[in-house]
Design a protein around this nucleic acid. Structure first.
Lengths: 366, 366
DNA sequence: GTATATTAGTATAGTATTCGAATATACTCT
DNA sequence: AGAGTATATTCGAATACTATACTAATATAC
């Protein structure tokens, strides 16, 4: 079991209870202090105190009278969704760099995009900083922090260990941005960001979730027990280079038959362009995905798998094929419980995931 | 990210700091209060206070003078390893029921075993209670709690959802034992218990670990980020019925080519008895294990895989074969970091795991 | 042999934060 | 109008931390 690593003092108690109240505010549009006390288990006195702080900070706002019942009428308190904004950046697309300001309700209220093709190394850092600076300067309110979703291997402290497409190696991106903008910065792998977004804003509501990101490559982000899972060397989710067919085509990694060789968008496109029936191509790819998922899903007992990929054709069919294969190859019990579904969060998924990261880091919510 | 679910008060602060001190005591044989303060980050005054409590409870004991250096000599404080005992039960073996009393150092100080073959349902509960009662009555000191490792699907609250071999379905074993013995009870799946034991007492020292239990069936226990992972329906680790060969032999689950059909001890024995070369049989089984592990290990980025099975022949060879297959089928980087090794904790692994469960539940250590 | 420095541990006062109880408030119901 | 009820605040007690000062016991330098 996880060792306790830090001592606790009064402020920690306070921080936990504050988070509890904030979480309640995030979940419902309006609650009275009495409601919050019941929800959190805290005494009314403590809740009043905490709410006063949140009101003073502007995070919460009073919303007038509650419904009239017997007794003193309640004063409703709600989250002030436009009191803070998160700056999010999505570096996962090799052709376009997306940045946005997102309010506390998760609504994108401002967007800045930049042509991104071919930019790597320091130039990519500079371009990212530029775009972020633009959003910040036009941002509609005070900022909570900056969240970034990037391809590659990322540590929880925001160092990009390796991101080949961007030419980044051991780049402490979080520190760079922190120094530049003097704001808290959180960085996450793009697939992990998708998982976070799905966890907080998606259709499912389980504590364990896997998000498959299909693009030029194939990766996965995992939520285990409500937490992002990074893995021993921060490489959790590396599913693209699992071999699923010993006689498969050559992969850019040098092996043959990696999942990526069947599932990456360019491969799918190429197969379809070559005249193969699109349905069959996608089904075959889904089958391979199912092969790779079976063991992982079984071992983790995950019921919620989300597939996300822009420009990915026939996602429904892909998911169906994957599920079919998975069901044929694991316990009936598990197979019946698992769903594999396309993401329904659209093109902003990674931006939203980066937003969740900051919300969770800075406010302890989402 | 995981929602905070409970409010915090003064006692929680206290509990966390107490755990910190206890953990330090568990880790080293003797430390001065000043050492503990440095280790935990707490002030000397707080440490003194907490140590006083632990001394009063008998959990800690003073051990005389520390080494003479400049300044006032220190008084060493250490864990009193015989101040509490955990009662552990291992129900995983279909022929023998093992119970033991284990001291705080993890040493088995008393053993009671019972013939177990064929006993199921209520009779199995009765037999378990009997054996536990025997250990308790002969136990060498005050008890911390009861820990049980059992086959089957077990919830974190100690309900055995399903344990076919024992004929248990929806049995709230923890409550039964709690009512009978008036002690805290923790119950865990046997493979999970092995994982816990390896995590706390094993050779590795990573926060992510997978333990493969090979017996009549095949299961896995997983430690993710220092925590036991139960999965969405408490079935995490179900790896035995992942299909690894479409043309494999029929499995008791009705499918063909499940991992179990290659790896379960009876299957291995049968193959060897049939005259096949033992080395080849084991290698082939290891290969299948590697197939099943590849995706799971890749997705979770686990570096430490432990194989445990009593009566399992040539474990070294099995592990080597599994690793070889795994390396051939995933990223070189990951493959190089992964180790697959036989357990070195012997026949008491599950007892020790159940012990860890109780230590972690009741003292917040291990 | 004495003064000084150093480390251990405790005692005391101050502070943060929660909790419980009492109280003020403002409404509905009769 | 008066009783009843739920909301919210105020106030004091309790808890457990931190900081600071203090005592104790030793080694070391001279």
């Amino acid at each position: 079991m996880l060792r306790v690593v830090a001592k606790a003092g009064h402020q920690d108690t306070r921080a936990i209870n504050r988070r509890l109240v904030l979480q309640s505010l995030f979940r419902s549009d309006a609650s009275s202090r009495a409601d919050l006390a019941r929800l959190t288990g805290l005494t009314p006195a403590t809740v009043s105190d905490l709410v006063a702080v949140l009101l003073a900070e502007g995070l919460a706002e009073e919303l007038g009278r509650g419904p009239a019942k017997v007794g003193k009428p309640s004063t409703l308190v709600g989250l002030n969704v436009s009191s803070r904004y998160v700056i999010s950046a999505d570096l996962s697309d090799s052709s376009i760099l997306r940045t946005a300001a997102i309010d506390l309700a998760g609504k994108v209220s401002l967007r800045v995009e930049r042509e991104f093709r071919g930019v790597t190394g320091e130039a990519a850092v500079a371009l990212t900083e530029e775009a972020i600076a633009d959003v910040i300067s036009a941002s509609p309110g005070p900022l909570l922090g900056i969240g970034v979703g990037t391809p590659g291997i990322v540590t929880p402290t925001g160092t990009v260990v390796e991101a080949g497409t961007l030419g980044w190696f051991d780049l402490h991106l979080a520190r760079r941005l922190q120094d530049r903008f003097d704001l808290p910065v959180s960085v996450s792998n793009d697939a992990n960001a998708i998982a976070l977004a799905e966890y907080s804003y998606g259709a499912g509501n389980s504590q364990n979730l896997m998000a498959i990101k299909i693009g030029d490559g194939v990766g996965a982000g995992i939520i285990v027990n409500g937490h992002q899972h990074h893995g021993e060397s921060f490489s959790a989710g590396e599913i693209g280079h699992v071999v699923v067919d010993d006689d498969g085509p050559e992969c850019r990694c040098g092996r043959y038959g990696c999942l990526e060789t069947f599932l990456a968008v360019p491969r799918l496109r190429a197969a379809i362009a070559a005249g193969d029936d699109p349905g069959s191509v996608v089904s075959a790819a889904g089958h391979r995905l199912g092969l790779a998922l079976t063991a992982a899903v079984s071992v983790l007992d995950i019921h919620d798998v989300v597939v996300s990929g822009s420009g990915l054709p026939r996602q429904d069919r892909l998911c169906r094929a994957a599920l079919e294969t998975l069901r044929a190859r694991t316990l009936a019990n598990l197979g019946q419980s698992v769903t594999i579904r396309p993401s329904d969060l659209g093109d902003d998924t990674i931006l939203l995931g980066a937003n969740v990261l900051v919300l969770s880091q800075e406010l302890g919510v989402a």
